[in-house]
């Protein structure tokens, strides 16, 4: 029953608060524009889903995401083979109405920096802090 009553409330908010969608699209537009202007490949998205395509193997992908999370404090999903072809890295960002334009700026900046490290080949070497995960 909470799901049904909660559903009624959500429907009410969707009906009565168009500003939520407006805020979402402000963030989407800023994020996608920022990334595209920085030269990132966002593929063929024409929705809020924001994929960022880069090239690299497993080591590059894991080290890049590790760097993003640990040193830049950016958390996003990483998709690798077999969901996408080998040699491709896909980072997927989902903007929301709750994000701010400052969040966008921080993120675009972080992406530029990790791309630089990626292109320098640093994520493919053991020089980089290879992920050690507690099991």
């Amino acid at each position: 029953m909470p799901m049904v009553l909660g559903g009624l409330k959500r429907l009410e908010l969707i009906r009565t608060k168009p500003e939520l969608k407006e805020r979402l699209w402000t963030v989407v537009a800023a994020l996608q524009k920022g990334l595209r202007e920085a030269g990132f490949d966002l593929g063929k998205t024409n929705s809020a889903v924001t994929p960022v395509y880069m090239k690299g193997g497993e080591a590059e992908a894991t080290n890049l995401v590790y760097d993003l999370r640990e040193n830049f404090g950016i958390f996003c999903s990483m998709i690798v083979y077999p969901v996408i072809p080998k040699g491709d890295i896909l980072l997927r960002l989902i903007p929301t109405a709750m994000h701010t334009l400052e969040d966008v700026e921080i993120t675009v900046d972080a992406f530029k920096k990790v791309r630089k490290t990626l292109l320098e080949g640093k994520y493919s070497t053991t020089d980089f802090a290879i992920v050690e995960v507690d099991m």
């Binding site: 909470p2 009553l5 404090g73 958390f75 997927r92 929301t96």
Partner: peptide
Amino acid sequence: KEVLNWSLNNYLGLANHTEVRKADAEAA
């Protein structure tokens, strides 16, 4: 550590909206 999170499909931000949380809690 705090992270800036871009991985929730919370497009409109309803998931943790105060009115939604209230309705869910009251119903429960």
